[in-house]
């Protein structure tokens, strides 16, 4: 008679363990989910006085005058968007070329391995080191290139002089290098997830390698490459240190890409440490705008990426 009792006892004992552990895991999950809400809530709360005072004008005003308590971030929004787009313009062809290079066998495997390693290293280098390198290497090069461009195309507003070393163009060059690994990695994934059979089909019909790449492989991988570009754009918009060190942090709007500019992230990095009162609130407001823009861009990127995975699942 005692045997069944002890057995049911041990069953009961078994049960109490997992319930507690499950609760712990559930709590951790809740904390994870709440973190994002908490971040947004705290930022909105801290920004509230500025939101209340400036409203939408904050987005469209170009004045950033802490002494006179007037704040507007229009130039920084423009700087964030433009510097990121210019960076994408430079990084996209390179990133796509590398992604194709890594998924094809143009050169023997060891060479591809080296390039792969180089790209991974580029992803690992800290932003502040890019900034330091940018100050000493990219600024002089960019300045002389910009001087030449101004002398030739100076009549075009976006290439107008005088050319500065600390400029939107300089920041964009370094940004382009920094987002290259993002574009490369995701594009390469979607290229290599194009079924091998499609590639063989194209070759068997008499395609040259590039006819197969351009006609069949790239179109199949296109959604993934688009996603890669969008996610890289999101990264570029949030990138802080290297940009803050190179862009000149000016709140003056200029048509020329060779002029100093400013970004939202750079603004935060430069001013948060010494800000007081309404300036802190305004910086929080700027942070809120930055988080909304980057969340928006990233959500689109993730959505496209998910759509891609559905698509390739269909082909297989």
């Amino acid at each position: 008679m005692s045997a069944p009792t002890s057995q049911s006892n041990s069953l009961a004992h078994y049960k109490s363990g997992p319930d507690f552990f499950r609760l712990l895991c559930w709590l951790a999950s809740a904390v994870t989910v709440l973190t994002l809400g908490w971040i947004i809530f705290k930022i909105v709360e801290s920004a509230w006085p500025a939101i209340h005072k400036f409203g939408w004008d904050f987005l469209t005003s170009s004045a950033w005058l802490p002494n006179r308590e007037r704040f507007g971030v229009f130039p920084f929004i423009v700087g964030t968007v433009v510097s990121s787009f210019v960076a994408i313009l430079m990084a996209f062809p390179l990133g796509l070329a590398i992604a194709i290079f890594l998924s094809e066998n143009f050169l023997p495997a060891p060479v591809r391995q080296v390039i792969r390693f180089v790209v991974e290293m580029l992803a690992a280098i800290p932003s502040v080191v890019y900034g330091l390198w940018g100050i000493f290497v990219v600024i002089p090069l960019s300045k002389s290139f910009a001087d030449w461009m101004v002398s030739v195309f100076g009549g075009v507003p976006i290439f107008a002089g005088p050319a500065y070393g600390n400029s939107l163009f300089t920041a964009s060059i370094v940004l382009a290098i920094m987002i290259l690994p993002t574009i490369t990695a995701i594009s390469r994934n979607s290229l290599s997830s194009v079924p091998k059979t499609l590639r063989e089909g194209a070759y068997a019909l008499g395609s040259t390698r590039w006819e197969a790449i351009l006609g069949v492989i790239l179109p199949s991988a296109a959604p993934g490459i688009v996603a890669a570009t969008i996610l890289a754009l999101g990264r570029a918009m949030g990138e802080t240190m290297a940009v803050a060190m190179l862009i000149g942090n000016s709140s003056r709007l200029s048509w020329s890409i060779f002029s100093p500019a400013g970004t939202l992230a750079g603004l935060l990095a430069n001013q948060f440490g010494e800000a007081q009162e309404l300036q802190v609130n305004s910086l929080m407001y700027a942070a809120l705008i930055l988080i909304i823009i980057t969340l928006f861009v990233n959500m689109i990127g993730e959505a496209v990426l998910r759509y891609t995975q559905h698509q390739t699942a269909g082909i297989r």
């Binding site: 079924p195 059979t197 499609l198 063989e200 089909g201 194209a202 070759y203 068997a204 019909l205 008499g206 395609s207 069949v216 179109p219 199949s220 698509q311 082909i315």
Partner: peptide
């Protein structure tokens, strides 16, 4: 050559 000698694969592979 590959245009002169066509091939059909085990798993059908129409392009998307």
């Amino acid at each position: 050559l590959r245009r002169s000698i066509g091939m059909v694969f085990q798993k059908s592979n129409p392009f998307p």
